[in-house]
Design a protein around this nucleic acid. Structure first.
Lengths: 118, 118
DNA sequence: ATTATATTTGAACATATGTTCAAGTGTTTA
DNA sequence: TAAACACTTGAACATATGTTCAAATATAAT
């Protein structure tokens, strides 16, 4: 049995169109990269964290206080943002202070914010 | 037992900062709205569909052909894009032709594309 | 040294998401 | 009318995601 059962049966209706669109189509790599970028902003906790950090450098504890969520939950999300280089951090004694590190994402974020507020 | 076990124990380190950030914080509604907007673009199949439709109006069958995926999978994704008013459609005989319907999302999409290609 | 504080981490859990498969609708062609 | 075609839909399935809880790490204060 062919795994691509359906796929192989698909016949194009307009072969010219299909070929021309296929030529400029995003590569898998680009599409995955792009969607991963948007995924960072696709969670309300993370959008709130990014919004909070856009005005102030903050420690984990204060972010948790501001969002009304557990320190652990915030720390898990910060790890994601750290791995994606969206935020950077600075250690001072026991505390860890986070701030934004990616102006591209900030721009995307603000475009999105504009969109929902219009 | 308090459900918000952790939350209530959080004490702010810098109360002034915390209050000032909280005052301008996104509402839950805004944060959810914003993250849902980004969620639309947070899947590689949908970014490919949007990219394809940015150059041509296409029928379901041809989108499936271009992406090398089943018609059913594409149709499910088109429903999501339809519900979010990202795409519109036009029926012609048996065929259904889809095209983009939201310039805001297109702008976001292009900002993201710029980002990953820089 | 012991205790308290700030944060991180891993496992468990529930929920959300995307694709497949099979069956359905509606339109056209034979 | 029957068969073919283009598409949609619902259920099942596997995978991904976000939060909680408990435990671990690391630094500071007593």
């Amino acid at each position: 049995m062919n795994k691509h059962h359906d796929v192989c049966e698909v016949r194009s209706v307009d072969k010219k169109k299909v070929r021309s669109v296929m030529k400029s189509m995003l590569t898998d790599h680009e599409a995955i990269n792009l969607s991963e970028t948007f995924s960072v902003l696709a969670d309300p906790t993370r959008t709130k964290i990014i919004y909070a950090l856009s005005s102030e450098e903050l420690c984990v504890c204060d972010i948790a206080g501001i969002l009304g969520m557990s320190v652990s939950a915030i720390s898990h999300q910060l790890r994601i943002l750290r791995n994606m280089r969206i935020v950077k951090f600075r250690k001072e004694a026991k505390m860890v202070y986070y701030s934004l590190d990616d102006e591209h994402i900030s721009r995307l974020f603000n475009e999105g914010l504009k969109h929902i507020r219009e």
